[in-house]
C-alpha cells in the first residue's frame, strides 16, 4: 500500500464529514428522519406523496450548496477513463443496488453506523469491498493499456 500524501486532505475531509454528520443529526432530532439520499430521491421518484415536502426541501438544500459556494470544484473528473456507456451502466447499478439494499453511503454509512445497526454494517462492508474491487480492476485495465 502506497499512501498518496500529496492528495491527502485530513482537515477538510474531517471537517466536511462533521458537517454531514451534523446535517444527519438535526434531521433526526427534528422528526426522527434518516438522511439517506438514495431513499429520499427514490421516494420522490416513486411518487410517494407522504413526506414529499420534507424530501424536496432536503434535496433543494443539497443542490443549493454548489451555488452558494461558488460552483463545483474544478476538474471534478473521474480518475479512470471510463467510456460513457459504462458510466451510464454505473448509474443504473447505483440506483438499482441502493433501492434493493435500501440505502447508500449516507443512509447505511453515516446514519446506520451511527445507530449501530448490524444491517448497515453489512451493507457498508459490501459496498466498500465491491467498490475497492471494481477500482482495482479499472486500475489494472488502465495499466495494461498503457
Amino acid at each position: 500500500m502506497i499512501i498518496d500524501w500529496a492528495q491527502f486532505t485530513p482537515g477538510a475531509s474531517l471537517g466536511g464529514g462533521a458537517l454531514i454528520g451534523l446535517a444527519a443529526a438535526i434531521l433526526y432530532l427534528a422528526d426522527g428522519r434518516i438522511a439517506g439520499v438514495s431513499g429520499i430521491f427514490g421516494a420522490v421518484l416513486s411518487g410517494t406523496r407522504a413526506g414529499l415536502e420534507w424530501r424536496l426541501a432536503f434535496l433543494a438544500g443539497l443542490v443549493a450548496a454548489p451555488w452558494l459556494l461558488g460552483g463545483l470544484p474544478a476538474g471534478a473528473l473521474a480518475r479512470f477513463d471510463v467510456p460513457l456507456p459504462i458510466l451510464f451502466l454505473a448509474g443504473v447499478l447505483t440506483g438499482y443496488g441502493t433501492r434493493i439494499a435500501r440505502g447508500c453511503t449516507s443512509g447505511h454509512g453515516v446514519c446506520g453506523l451511527s445507530r449501530l445497526s448490524p444491517r448497515s454494517l453489512v451493507a457498508v462492508l459490501c459496498f466498500l469491498g465491491a467498490g475497492m474491487a471494481t477500482v482495482t480492476v479499472l486500475r489494472l485495465l488502465s495499466e495494461a493499456r498503457a
Partner: peptide, 16 residues
Amino acid sequence: PLVVGSLVFGIGWGLS
C-alpha cells in the same frame, strides 16, 4: 437483497 444490492451499488460507485 441487502448484500446483493450493496454489492451492485459498490460496483456502480467504483466505476463512476
